[in-house]
């Protein structure tokens, strides 16, 4: 379980998270929606300790993420993350991209790492791309590679930050299908997304972020189709 407890986070004078609390139980898919600059990405970065927090607490399986005693590198092995911007390692083949972390972080043998990497690449539909360099692939393929690379670490949670928003419209579908597959397999996920259809159909709950607080959170269909908070209503009427 991921538990976010009254988290405050500022960049200099700018307070980006103003007391965010959130529990994501195992097996749940939570979509996070909200306007640009409302703090959605920052929350994900705080959950896997790429960013620090000013106050509050974040627990991942009861481990205090921001405690001095927590080994952050170790913790991040549990949290797979995929970013908005493509960030495959361009000097490695697709297979090497996916096999690297299992080998050097989890200290698996080369054979084991390659086996897991191949399995996850096939999982996301890249079984025919092992020896290709990522710069030769489409954006959709690069994002699926990023997902497979994260999955190869066998994470307990996946954090996905607008993984489709840098894609050409015709490539969005293949990446969303991959996420849907993960959801069906029971992966616990927090997806920051602008895809309202995805949020409605695939996630269990949806949280609407507004200026650093969660303005509304609830069952997915209900938040997307019958939002209670006027701010959510206004936001959804604009993105539709």
């Amino acid at each position: 379980m991921i538990s976010v407890q009254n988290v405050h986070k500022s960049f200099g004078d700018l307070e980006v998270l103003k007391g965010v609390s959130l529990d994501v139980p195992n097996g749940e898919v939570l979509s996070v929606i909200g306007g640009s600059g409302s703090g959605k990405s920052t929350l994900l970065y705080c959950i896997n300790a790429i960013e620090t927090i000013n106050s509050g607490k974040i627990l991942v399986d009861d481990v205090d993420v921001h405690s001095k005693d927590t080994n952050k590198d170790k913790l991040r092995q549990k949290l797979g993350m995929v970013f908005q911007h493509f960030n495959a390692f361009p000097h490695m083949t697709v297979l090497e991209n996916a096999a690297l972390a299992p080998r050097i972080v989890k200290k698996m043998s080369k054979e084991e790492a390659i086996e897991i990497a191949k399995k996850e690449l096939e999982h996301v539909g890249l079984g025919d791309k092992f020896d290709v360099y990522p710069t030769r692939m489409s954006g959709g393929q690069q994002q699926r590679l990023a997902i497979a690379r994260a999955l190869a670490m066998k994470p307990d949670f996946m954090l996905l930050d607008e993984v489709t928003s840098a894609l050409d419209p015709e490539l969005v579908g293949e990446v969303l299908d991959t996420l849907r597959l993960l959801a069906d397999e029971g992966m616990t996920m927090i997806c920051v997304t602008h895809e309202m259809g995805f949020a409605r159909d695939v996630s269990d709950r949806v949280a609407y972020f507004h200026q650093g607080v969660i303005a509304e959170i609830g069952e997915a269909k209900q938040v997307i189709t019958e939002p209670q908070n006027p701010l959510t209503q206004k936001f959804l009427s604009k993105v539709r």
């Binding site: 991040r76 960030n87 972390a101 050097i104 972080v105 690379r149």
Partner: peptide, 8 residues
């Protein structure tokens, strides 16, 4: 950030 997020 990509390599950090993989636990490197």
């Amino acid at each position: 950030s990509a390599s950090k997020s993989l636990g490197m």
